[in-house]
Computed example of a mutant assay.
Amino acid sequence: MTDTAPKPSYEPITRQRTFEIIADRIRESLISQELRPGDKLPSERILAEQFNVSRPAVREAYRVLEMAGILQMKKGVKGGAFITQGNQQLLVDNMSDLLRVGNISLESMIEARIWIEQVVVRVVCERASPEDIDRLEENVVQAERSFLAHDYEAKTRLNIEFHNLMAEATGNPVLVMIMRSLTDVFMFFARRLGPESTRSTFESRQRLLMHLRNGNVEEAIAETTQNLLSVQDLYASMAEELRLASGRDEKSSN
């Protein structure tokens, strides 16, 4: 009897390359807290002896960890490989690159941002101190001053920083990192599209601050969500106008 059932296809099992094993061991030392930010790693020669590997393998492991933002390579007499505090900009650059090449859509990014903001607002209602709310209010005041002075670029920067202040008010460093990564990406697109000159965000922010002070969780979430959707529509309209203007310029040049 012939077995006609489809047979699975397996990829060959490959061994990790030496430099990958070295990099993984260093990562494990971070997890176990044998290594901490600011610590200096042994020289290539010493680490090669400890691992019983070649110096190029250690050099490649250091290079991989440097690209990942885990190590900082310093030159000079007191130089060497040092554990960093972490480089959040790598995450921002990665998300920006994925957006540029189309692996992540702007719509998906905006949707994720709205969900994360909803979590942040809920936590802020529970944890924020009066000083946290005061910082948020001062941000709104400064942004409105910039608007009245027709400094729309500063206004946009302050409006985006408001979201980072919200994340800081949660007291959760992971939410702070995620929020700052998202706002940095959106700041990149805001600069490309150009500053917008509306003041509707200020009215929304005042309502949000009132809800935060009173601990009105659902009202605060609804206000934040509606504002983000309005900003999304505004920037989508600006992007379309920019695209049409670019098309007209191209035709006139021909």
Rank of each mutant, 00 (worst) to 15 (best):
R191K: 15
D3M: 07
P37R: 03
M210S: 13
L99K: 03
K78M: 10
R145T: 15
R213T: 01
A112W: 04
R157P: 01
L30G: 00
I160M: 14
S204C: 09
R207P: 00
I160F: 13
L158M: 08
L234W: 03
A149D: 14
D3R: 09
G79M: 04
N216K: 14
L35V: 06
D184A: 13
K40M: 14
I46V: 15
V120M: 07
Q50C: 07
N164Y: 02
A169R: 01
S204E: 13
A167W: 00
G215A: 05
L47W: 01
I46G: 06
F147G: 01
Q226C: 10
L47D: 01
V140W: 00
E66N: 13
T4C: 07
L228K: 09
V64L: 15
A169D: 00
S230D: 13
I160T: 10
Y235Q: 12
F147I: 05
Q85W: 08
L175R: 10
R63G: 06
E241R: 15
V58K: 04
H150L: 08
T156C: 08
V124I: 10
D3P: 01
R17Q: 14
H150I: 05
R145D: 11
S105L: 04
A220S: 13
M109S: 14
I21H: 12
F19Y: 15
A190N: 11
L91F: 13
E60Y: 11
N164A: 06
F147P: 01
E126P: 02
S237I: 05
E168L: 13
L30D: 01
G80A: 04
G80I: 00
A220E: 04
M166L: 15
R25D: 12
I21Q: 11
F19V: 02
R199M: 08
E60W: 06
M1H: 11
Q142S: 12
S246Y: 08
R127T: 15
S32H: 10
L30T: 00
A128R: 05
T84N: 02
D151G: 06
E60C: 07
